[in-house]
Design a protein around this nucleic acid. Sequence first.
DNA 1: TGTCTCATGGAAAGCGCTTACCAGTTGGGA
DNA 2: TCCCAACTGGTAAGCGCTTTCCATGAGACA
Lengths: 398, 398
Amino acid sequence: MGKRIPNAFIMTRGSGSGNRFPEAGHDCNNRMLLKVPETEAFEEELSVTASTLSEVAKLAGVSPATASRVLNGSARTPAPEIAERVRQAADTLGYIANAQAQALAKSSTGLIGLIVHDIADPYFSAIAQGVQAAARQERRMVLLATTNGTPAEEKEAVAAFAARRAESIVIAGSRSTRSEDARANTDLAAELDRYCRNGGRVGVVGQAILGVAETDSYRTITVPNEQLARDLARDLARTHKGPFVIVAGPEGLTTSDERVMGFQRGLSDAGQPAADIVHVAFNRNGGFDAGIELAWRIKASDRSAPDQRLCIFGTNDVMAIGVAAALRDQGLRVPHDASLAGFDDIEWLRDFRPALSTVSLPLEEIGRLATMATLSNDDGGAAAVVGSVTLRRSTGSP
Amino acid sequence: MGKRIPNAFIMTRGSGSGNRFPEAGHDCNNRMLLKVPETEAFEEELSVTASTLSEVAKLAGVSPATASRVLNGSARTPAPEIAERVRQAADTLGYIANAQAQALAKSSTGLIGLIVHDIADPYFSAIAQGVQAAARQERRMVLLATTNGTPAEEKEAVAAFAARRAESIVIAGSRSTRSEDARANTDLAAELDRYCRNGGRVGVVGQAILGVAETDSYRTITVPNEQLARDLARDLARTHKGPFVIVAGPEGLTTSDERVMGFQRGLSDAGQPAADIVHVAFNRNGGFDAGIELAWRIKASDRSAPDQRLCIFGTNDVMAIGVAAALRDQGLRVPHDASLAGFDDIEWLRDFRPALSTVSLPLEEIGRLATMATLSNDDGGAAAVVGSVTLRRSTGSP
DNA sequence: TGTCTCATGGAAAGCGCTTACCAGTTGGGA
DNA sequence: TCCCAACTGGTAAGCGCTTTCCATGAGACA
């Protein structure tokens, strides 16, 4: 909202009084004012911009304090008759409280900051949905920031949220342990630390951010990536007898790393040799690239021999979809020529065929949990996220 | 951020001075203060919460006005040497400007409100991505609200954004002309109108909201749904000789209605009889429901006769996917037993097989355009959105 | 040297609210 | 009848900034 606009008039009285009033003048505040003729008792003044509390108070013939107490919830409730008058006045003027001013006065903004890598990614938009739902339930608004997954931009976002005095921040998206991110990670940790010390609360989805101590104001919603990947591997190894390949994100991307580690452990549990790992981008196109590469390997093998058939584990669903697309592109079929599994169980991918074996994660719930964790004070043992292996056609019999 | 917290200390000086200082006392403001011993020149005072401009100013030995001019961009730039001192002080204290206070003082918040039906829906998350990108480019933050598509909740969201003094609002998602929404639509229009008169700008994606006059502060990014659906129908009619069926959203949902109308017109252009219309929910499950129903019809027909083969048009991609899932469920295959087309060309659905014929829309670009339209002042003729028909396998030969 | 202009830092008045404190009433108990 | 507690509404002091206006000093020019 810009400055006061001198050539517009608010005419909430409506009905017939819509003619501009020639003797409109300036008051001591240099504001454009308007004397409304049909009012007898006092000179009603309608200002040009959003009306303020004191305008409402003046119209109602009470003090701003009283008006505030009536309109914006307070421990003290003025007399019913007065309250009614204030409400009427507010209605007449179309009063909307200035949240900025309230925030300043009360030092509480009702804002929740949400940081994601990419809001268009269904993984993040599902989490965002949960955050949004929780925020609405708690009568908060959510501020959104996207970062492309770089800790440097995450730090920027935290600073911006801190400036806006967001009451809490929810950060979703894999951490990075790559050495080139080390510096940015430290900065991010410092920024978060400062934010927390100033009374902010933060909820992190996935894994803790290195360098920030877990305190009451800093909660992590841990996703048991490793355990679940391990379960998945064990389940797959039960029926699959050929070699395994993992299509992973870049080394140092914690989520991917955890899933890789868990999967390898699961294979080892099952007495299988470790899987080969292909590192690509942690998205659909990365999966596609890997798929093209793997297609060669598959074609070179004897696909009819069960002990040569490949089982490919994409460390997230969209990568797995990318792999599938590449294999199809190369004339190979899943699960006929290779098995394929993903991770996350993205809702929008469930109609994909062959149906993707994956690990189901309650994404929306995770968003909700992370949000609530920053809002409530019970340190109630970091409500654990439970996921489950969901085997479908893509790892079925050829 | 809560009230001042009396038992936490900010120790930005760091390194070694981390011991609590026993003679911390209260100043006239009743704030917890801390005298830092190693400072000689003046008594540096570190407050408990985020430090303020005047604290920075005091530390730098200048007035708040000067500090403000140095730190938060102003036409007047103080002397380099002074500026440096202020910057140092700010750094030392870890100063972060209070955006709320700035907003109040400058009456400009740097906030953009985004209203969508459902952020988890890939259609909306793609648009959100565009909005976010534009916002970032213009150094704004985005406030998010989801409404499940009801005008009543949209109105709430507008009011909330108005209270937060968002500079502009972007509204995405189909309008509704259903009679039960008439009242809420009027309210929404009134709320928007008020918002605009108070200096707010709004950008609407899709179709104009009834009852709000198109002004400089109210822009619509029109999506040529009707034209594109018409193009699609004509293209399909070129090869498809059997009957057409439209799987539409509820009657009164403008986006759906427009696409239906355009499609019918296209059929008529091509000399084909009008399509039957099935009204279901405007989402994947609606499509699924319709698909189950249509499966019966398909099974009852002679699928080998080209003039009996059905071509199904889902008025958006996710509905079409729902239809496909249902047909598959019923043992039918696309395009073998029926042709299928969608609308939107959702990115995440492109790996779906059979590849879906659809209408491509630059969703992210639309979000960007809508945002920029609310930010720029050139009334540059509502940059038109261009879409295009994309025929793929799902409407190919059986 | 005197005057005028321009540049520069500071004082202070808000921005639109909330809330601690105050003063005036009322009512009840002694 | 008097006193005190309990209410009630109003006054005013902020919340943390920005920005107008002012005072001062320096330079320019005659």
